[in-house]
Amino acid sequence: MNANPCNRYMVELANIVARGNRCRASYGCRRAGNGRDVISAITIYGARGDVDKTEAIWTAMETSRAAMWRERARATPHAKANAAWRNGYYRGFQEEIARRYQVLRLEMESDGTGKELVTVRSGQVDQWIETHVTFITDKPKLPKTTRPSQAAYRHGRQDGARQAIGLKETGAAGNWTLEK
C-alpha cells in the first residue's frame, strides 16, 4: 500500500469485514523516508473462498467510502473536505459496519447450526494463525490522527447503514442470504 493517513482506517475496516466472514486480518509496517512508521500491507487469513469474498467486500466498501466522504462533505453546509471530516466519516462508517456484522453474528449464533459453523471455521483460522504466523510484539508507533468531526461521524454511520456487507436481508428481521 502507498503511505496514506487512511491506511489505519483501511486496516480496521479490513479486520471488521474479515471477522464478519470467518477470516482474520493483520497489517505490516515499514519505515517511510521521513522516519515514521507507516502501514504498508494488509494480509487476510482464512479459507480461500472466505478470503476471496472478504477481499471483494472490503475492496467495494473502501472504494465506496473513499468516494462518499468527499461527496458528503461537499453536500453538507459548513463542512470542509479535510482530515477531521474524513476521519470522522471513516470512523462512523466502519463502526456501523461492525455493528451490522455483530447483529448478524448474534442472529447466526442464535441457532445451533449457525453457531457451530461460525465457531468451527473461526477456530480453524485462529489455530492456523497460531501455528504458522509470527507477529512482532512491538507495535509500530504510528502518527496521531486528526481529531474526527462528529458531524462527519453521523454521516459515515448513515452511509455505512446502506452499504452492502456481503449478505442481504430477505424481508423479515433475522433472515439473511448470501449475495451472488
Rank of each mutant, 00 (worst) to 15 (best):
Ala60Gly: 10
Gln94Asn: 04
Glu96Ile: 05
Ala81Phe: 06
Lys80Trp: 09
Gln94Gly: 03
Arg74Lys: 15
Trp69Tyr: 11
Trp69Gln: 13
Arg91Val: 13
Ala79Phe: 12
Arg86His: 02
Ala75Tyr: 01
Ser64Glu: 07
Ala75Phe: 03
Ala98Asn: 04
Tyr89Phe: 02
Ala84Lys: 06
Lys80Gly: 03
Ala83Ser: 14
Glu55Leu: 13
Ala67Tyr: 07
Ile57Arg: 06
Thr63Cys: 08
Arg65Lys: 09
Ala56Gln: 10
Thr54His: 09
Glu62Met: 12
Thr76Arg: 13
Thr54Leu: 11
Trp58His: 12
Arg70Ala: 07
Arg65Phe: 03
Thr63Gly: 05
Ser64Phe: 11
Glu71Lys: 11
Ala75Gln: 08
Ala67Gln: 09
Arg70Trp: 02
Glu62Thr: 10
Arg72Ile: 12
Thr76Ser: 14
Pro77Lys: 13
Glu71Ser: 13
Thr59Glu: 12
Gln94Met: 09
Ile97Trp: 00
Ala60Gln: 09
Thr63Ile: 08
Tyr90Glu: 05
Asn87Gly: 01
Tyr89Trp: 05
Ala81Thr: 07
Met61Ser: 04
Phe93Ala: 00
Ala98Phe: 03
His78Phe: 15
Gln94Phe: 02
Thr54Asn: 04
Lys80Tyr: 08
Gly92Asn: 01
Arg72Gln: 14
Arg65Leu: 08
Arg72Thr: 15
Tyr89Ile: 03
Arg91Ile: 05
Lys80Asn: 13
Phe93Leu: 02
Met68Ile: 07
Ala66Gln: 15
Arg72Gly: 12
Arg72Lys: 15
Trp85Ile: 05
Asn82Asp: 10
Ala79Trp: 14
Arg72Phe: 12
Ala84Ser: 13
His78Asn: 15
Asn87Trp: 00
Ala79Leu: 09
Glu62His: 14
Glu71Trp: 10
Glu55Gln: 09
Gly92Gln: 04
Ala83Asp: 09
Ala66Phe: 15
Arg65Ser: 02
Glu96Arg: 08
Asn82Thr: 00
Glu95Asn: 11
Tyr89Met: 00
Ile57Trp: 00
Ala98His: 01
Ala83Thr: 07
Ala67Asp: 11
Met61Asp: 05
Glu62Ile: 12
Ala83Arg: 04
Ala81Met: 05
Gly92Met: 04
Asn87Phe: 03
Gln94Pro: 01
Tyr90Gly: 02
Arg74Asn: 14
Ala66His: 15
Glu62Leu: 11
Met61Phe: 01
Gly88Trp: 05
Phe93Ile: 00
Pro77Gln: 04
Asn82Trp: 02
Gly88Asp: 00
Ala73Asp: 07
Thr76His: 07
Ser64Gly: 12
Arg86Phe: 00
Arg86Ser: 01
Thr76Ala: 14
Ala81Asp: 08
Thr76Tyr: 12
Tyr90Ile: 04
Gly92Asp: 05
Tyr90Cys: 04
His78Met: 15
Met68Pro: 04
Arg86Ile: 00
Arg70Leu: 10
Glu62Cys: 14
Ala60Asn: 09
Trp69His: 04
Arg86Ala: 08
Arg74Gln: 15
Pro77Ile: 06
Glu62Asn: 14
Arg72Met: 15
Glu71His: 11
Ala56Lys: 10
Asn82Pro: 01
Thr54Gln: 10
Gln94Glu: 08
Trp69Gly: 00
Thr54Trp: 08
Asn82Glu: 03
Ala66Leu: 15
Arg70Tyr: 10
Ala56Val: 02
Arg86Asn: 02
Trp58Tyr: 13
Arg91Leu: 13
